[in-house]
Each structure stands twice: as structure tokens, then as C-alpha cells.
Simulated scan of single mutants.
Amino acid sequence: MINLIPNAMNITRVIALPVETVEKRDGTVNVEGKRLDTFYGSTLSLGMGQDESPTYLDEQNATYDEERFREYFSRDIDEIELSDNEVFVLGDNG
């Protein structure tokens, strides 16, 4: 675990292993070309994208930060091929 915020716990998960490929497009993480059955948001795990998610969350009376939500979907990661001594991690913390 890498502590990015002093005196705070940051949770990260290994999602890709050495020599695998990983990318993130429109909120979906792909490892080896296959969609990760993600834990990074309930609407994503239901197959909803940026347009459907806010409506669903509002219907569920869920609280969420709209700015962070938009930022998550706007940040893509081009495909990366990991070397034989690298892993790829994503964090749950904003």
C-alpha cells in the first residue's frame, strides 16, 4: 500500500499482474482486453455509463460528488503493457 495522504489510509488493489495489459475507457477497466468485473462503483457493475448512472443514483437516494463522478469518467488510461516486474493498482480513495 502506498500512503498518498499523510495520516490517512488509502486502499489500493492489484488489478493487473506482470506482463498483462490494462486500460481504462469511459469508466470501465479492461485487463487483457476483458472488462474487469469492477468494484469501483455500483452503477458500473450494473453496466451503466456516465449518462445513466446519475439518474439511477438519484432514484436510489444515493449521495455522490458530481464533480468527482464526472472526473472519474473523463480520465482514460491508454493501454499499458506491464513489464515482468510490475503490477497495476487502483485506489478506492478520491
Rank of each mutant, 00 (worst) to 15 (best):
M1I: 13
I2W: 09
I2H: 11
I2M: 13
N3V: 14
I5N: 12
I5R: 13
P6W: 06
N7E: 13
N7H: 13
A8G: 04
N10C: 14
N10K: 10
N10Q: 13
I11E: 07
T12K: 07
R13E: 12
V14L: 12
V14S: 11
I15H: 12
I15K: 14
I15Q: 10
A16C: 14
A16M: 13
L17I: 14
L17F: 15
L17S: 15
P18C: 12
V19G: 12
E20N: 15
E20M: 14
T21C: 08
V22F: 11
E23K: 14
K24V: 11
K24P: 06
R25F: 06
R25N: 11
R25E: 08
R25L: 11
R25I: 07
D26M: 06
G27W: 00
G27K: 01
T28Q: 09
V29Y: 08
N30T: 08
V31P: 07
E32S: 14
E32T: 10
G33S: 08
G33R: 05
G33M: 07
K34D: 11
R35G: 09
L36D: 08
L36S: 05
L36P: 04
L36A: 08
D37Q: 11
D37L: 09
D37P: 10
T38Y: 00
T38Q: 01
T38I: 04
T38K: 00
F39A: 05
F39P: 04
Y40K: 02
Y40V: 01
G41T: 02
G41R: 01
S42N: 03
T43P: 00
T43R: 00
S45V: 05
S45E: 08
L46P: 04
L46Y: 08
G47D: 04
M48E: 04
M48H: 09
Q50N: 08
E52V: 05
E52R: 05
E52A: 12
E52L: 08
P54K: 01
P54C: 03
P54F: 01
P54I: 00
Y56W: 13
Y56V: 06
Y56T: 04
D58G: 00
D58H: 01
N61Q: 10
N61W: 06
A62H: 01
Y64E: 01
Y64K: 02
Y64H: 02
Y64P: 00
D65L: 02
E66K: 06
E66C: 03
E67Y: 07
E67K: 10
R68A: 08
R68T: 07
R68P: 01
F69P: 00
F69Y: 05
E71R: 08
E71G: 03
E71N: 11
Y72G: 00
Y72D: 02
S74K: 04
S74H: 03
S74D: 06
R75D: 03
R75E: 05
R75S: 05
I77W: 08
E79T: 14
E79I: 12
I80D: 05
L82I: 12
L82W: 11
L82H: 10
S83W: 10
D84M: 12
N85K: 15
N85F: 15
N85S: 14
E86G: 15
E86R: 15
E86D: 15
E86C: 15
V87A: 15
V87N: 14
F88E: 12
F88C: 13
L90H: 07
D92E: 13
N93D: 09
